[in-house]
Design a protein around this nucleic acid. Structure first.
Lengths: 342, 342
DNA sequence: CTGTTAGCGCTTTCAA
DNA sequence: TTGAAAGCGCTAACAG
């Protein structure tokens, strides 16, 4: 059984197609009595307007694409939830595109989204050193907002986390606690975000007169497992290079997932957190508050970021001018239980 | 600047619109030399076929809706990732619909999805006792697969977790460990899934000759915070009703998020896990393996579930018959460190 | 206020 | 092997 069309409604209501259209879109020109007749007819037929047909003629899809690198990191679902919420309120529908941090996949996804004629795109994170091919060709005509993709922050309205300063604060916090041998568990080498956090770490070290040492930086992949492996590597290096009298006493991890994994790794190797080793994370994902010990971390207001991003996008699509098109969020230190004084 | 249409390509290639269509869709009737000319023209114009127009005529959107209750619970993003992966491979695009466990919102979302003419829907979890209104009217004509919505498992192809047996196993495990006062941290009262898990818990208790006691069941909301609060409530009840000589020594939580929150709550009240109190969860989300102590839980193969669901849906949409339209996954006990013998 | 008409960009007969 | 024409379901002038 085919779905009823506007024609069916018109026939049943005894009016023309255009009247039905106007009535259903609640245009003021339609007499309210006919409006009612039309609504009744529509209801009787269980008529649902075909958004596809509408899009074709209005030339707007009211679809937005949300491009994220990894749904397994709670950070992104949190952003997605924020985007989704305001999108719904604004009568947009969101298409999910998961790139798995793969440039090829990302390009493919963008292509699909463009063919679907999304009105706009929200790019959240996952930027890698190589990936900037996609826009020039395809994406010039639609609305775009980027979240935490520093390399595009000056080409598009952007929401950025001040990763460098956040990382600097985190590191400085550790230093204030008396730590002198502080390691950094980074994300993948080509991740911009991770590079910025690395910069902040180095900066804090330098300004405090503590040298930067390459052997104290180890690369993970933003997953808990990656954090665990990184910690194991770190502690084995610690034994090899540093000697027993100057062990690593604090670790700054580039995200909470790795920080949690790292805490686990530390325990596996007989270290107690924070007594033997302090750990600080980044993001403040939900579970951070309830792990043992509760994770001290640099909080980032994920939900708000998602909401803000979608809000900005909607304004762009409405051709409104953005009073702010370069929003920078400052991560905030949340002291919990995973760091202690030396 | 408007996007080029098939007409532009036709003009540039010096052929007709229908030839372009055939060429681009790689139909064998087109001479390969013209095919090439067309492709070149398309490339030069940077032509992207308009999926909306295509959908209108082919009457298929290649869109599928994914309806989930809560993106903040890692369980659902994991399913989403699975769905997304095979959807992409099959050239479907997925629309995300987050209901926030709100029946009204769910109904609204479904409406939108139907208007967008999604080819199919996968409903993942979040079923509540009241919510079965949506199908009769709207959703009879499209493909539907349900994940863990027992109330629909016989109306649609379904993927179900054997919640009752899983819960029974979990409880039995605790009993084998020598526990006699075992509490259950449930989900919201109206959650089917949670009710099934409660049944399993009761069954195990009964079959082991341990009585079911209402004061040992406390309702959470599937969040870590909810688990924490539930645990506090539980321990305060424990003091009030049970007396010091028969305290709660084990807790089965209806999902991992609450289990992790509960562990935290226990610690806050001076209990050590698992020495003073054992805790078992359900789902096996990523972080479960790295919290302290690592969470013993009933594992559910989330990614696979997502993949399987999307696979089934695709088959339905192809009018293939499903060799299996009622798939039941058995949760598997993963022994880690959060449970100990009495 | 309501109806007629002309597309939106594509696919799909059907002829040539 | 290609082209002409019809039409998917809707909105948007424009006339009445």
């Amino acid at each position: 059984m085919k779905a009823p069309t506007i024609k069916d409604v018109a026939r049943l209501a005894g009016v023309s197609v255009s009247t039905v259209s106007a009535a259903l879109n609640d245009k003021p020109i339609v007499k309210s009595s006919t409006k009612q007749r039309v609504q009744e007819a529509a209801a009787k037929l269980n008529y649902r307007p075909n958004a596809i047909a509408r899009s074709l003629v209005t030339n707007e899809s009211r679809l937005v694409g949300l491009v994220v690198p990894d749904m397994a990191d709670p950070y992104f679902p949190a952003i997605a939830a924020g985007v989704d919420e305001v999108a719904g309120r604004l009568r947009y529908t969101v298409i999910l595109a998961n790139t798995l941090r793969d440039a090829k996949r990302e390009a493919e996804q963008i292509k699909v989204l463009m063919e679907r004629r999304v009105d706009g795109l929200v790019f959240a994170g996952g930027s890698t050193a190589g990936a900037r091919g996609w826009l020039g060709s395809a994406a010039s005509s639609i609305g775009i907002v980027v979240i935490d993709r520093p390399e595009f922050a000056f080409s598009y309205p952007s929401i950025t986390i001040d990763n460098e300063r956040g990382a600097e604060k985190a590191t400085r916090y550790l230093i204030q606690l008396g730590h002198e041998t502080i390691a950094f568990v980074s994300g993948p080498v080509d991740s911009y975000v991770s590079q910025e956090r690395l910069q902040g770490y180095r900066l804090a070290l330098r300004e405090s007169g503590l040298g930067y040492r390459e052997e104290l930086v180890v690369h993970g992949d933003f997953t808990p497992r990656g954090g665990l492996v990184a910690m194991e590597e770190l502690l084995s290096r610690s034994d090899r290079y540093l000697g027993v009298d100057a062990p690593v006493t604090a670790v700054f991890a580039a995200n909470d997932q790795m920080a949690i994994g790292a805490m686990h790794g530390a325990r596996l190797l007989g270290k107690e957190v924070p007594r033997d080793i302090s750990i600080i994370g980044f993001d403040d994902i939900d579970v951070a508050a309830v792990v043992e010990p509760p994770l001290t971390t640099m909080a980032v207001p994920t939900q708000d970021i998602g909401k803000t991003a979608m809000g900005m996008l909607a304004k762009c699509l409405n051709k409104e001018v953005l009073e702010q098109d370069r929003i920078v969020f400052q991560p905030q230190l949340i002291e919990r239980g995973s760091c202690a004084a030396r």
